[in-house]
Write a protein that binds this DNA or RNA. Structure first.
Lengths: 218, 218
DNA sequence: GTCTATACTTGGATAGAC
DNA sequence: GTCTATCCAAGTATAGAC
């Protein structure tokens, strides 16, 4: 306070300090949602994890629900950035399954989807939270839709199944698999599905480009 | 107490009374989980809906968590009975999709799967609840597995994809679709999938029995 | 503007009345 | 055995200190 005279007249200093506090809370909120769930994510518990006074949550975020939404924003942003980078150079369905499995493993280990699931389920208990959560999940669906669209473009699937509907199913499946894996503490049944998906993808690729599948040169 | 002298010496009377109270609580717990979610399903809220004293929950069930598990049991039993009856006379994949859509609509309207989802998500916040919920979901997976097994027996899918893995995916998808539908208050994207599933099923049937598909007599 | 101490409400659980 | 009145812990939120 006394030593930093550089920014004594600017409003930035206060903002920086405030921003740092908020970041700590957001980080603690993510951790708490992961390990304790929505019902266990109270102001007291989150503040204790952050090593800060619980009253600060209401000063900085207005309510616990708002803090949790900020946590969801942070996870959303971080993950979607990662996803975009991962699928950047991917061409066909086969490689897409590889990337999806890799992403799914990380999400499962780090508990990112748990945050999402807990917020969706928790939305039932807090008035007005539903639409807010829905808004924050839309980008995930959009990402899934565009990714699927480009991946199956030209394949027989693309013309029969609308990418939007498939994307909806993929997101739902992703959430459901996370729930079951988390509940049992066993990711194996979910991971086994990627193996089958890989088979189906290669089958799809064969149907899509029948001329090129046989030109293997040893 | 004074008028019913018939069973004054038996232990049944007290049990009957107790059973009736428990049923009321279970019913109220289901309703509360549906509308308020796990985080909103407190002893007080449930008791108010049942029109009973909240202390009774701890006398009859020991804890709120135990009451919620009893509610999950009740839903599980009721639904699986209905499912079994629905698929009883079903032969091929096509008809199975019809039945599945019908069941899904009912589950969605009545909020039965919401109870399941809330319990799974809520399990994170209550120590020891996870395994209990997992045990109660096992029958659902078993039902899905046997149903899929018999439905695709003989089809090319049956030999490639293990029924257990597919069942896991189906349950996960079911849970995920319920979550998204409930969040948005819009079941349409989920219901659209059944239309696509019907198409795929008829495709599968055509592959399975190529000789009989062309013998249409007008 | 930032944070702490405090007020008030709701929740889980039980001692004791019937 | 069944139920109610009551206790204490945990929750949200804010008034006021710095």
């Amino acid at each position: 306070m006394a030593k930093a005279g550089a920014s004594s007249r600017t409003a930035t200093k206060g903002s920086e300090r405030s921003a740092a506090t908020r970041r700590h809370f957001v980080e603690a909120a993510i951790e708490t949602l992961r390990s304790e769930g929505y019902a266990g994510a109270s102001a007291r518990v989150i503040a204790q994890r952050a090593g800060l006074n619980q009253g600060l949550i209401f000063y900085h975020f207005g309510s616990v629900a708002n803090l949790l939404l900020a946590a969801l924003d942070a996870v959303s942003e971080e993950r979607l950035e990662r996803y975009s980078a991962a699928v950047a150079g991917v061409t066909g369905p086969g490689r897409l399954v590889d990337v999806a499995e890799d992403i799914f493993r990380t999400d499962l280990d780090a508990g990112y989807i748990t945050v999402l699931v807990e917020m969706i389920a928790g939305a039932s208990s807090t008035p007005g939270l539903g639409p807010e959560v829905s808004d924050r999940i839309r980008p995930w669906r959009e990402f899934a839709r565009t990714t699927i669209e480009t991946a199956v473009a030209g394949s027989p699937m693309g013309s029969v199944l609308p990418a939007g509907d498939v994307a909806h199913a993929v997101v739902a499946l992703y959430l459901g698999l996370e729930m079951l894996s988390h509940l049992d503490g066993d990711p194996d049944p979910a991971l086994a599905l990627f193996g089958h998906a890989r088979q189906l993808a290669s089958l799809l690729e064969a149907l899509s480009t029948p001329a090129t599948t046989t030109e293997e040169s040893p």
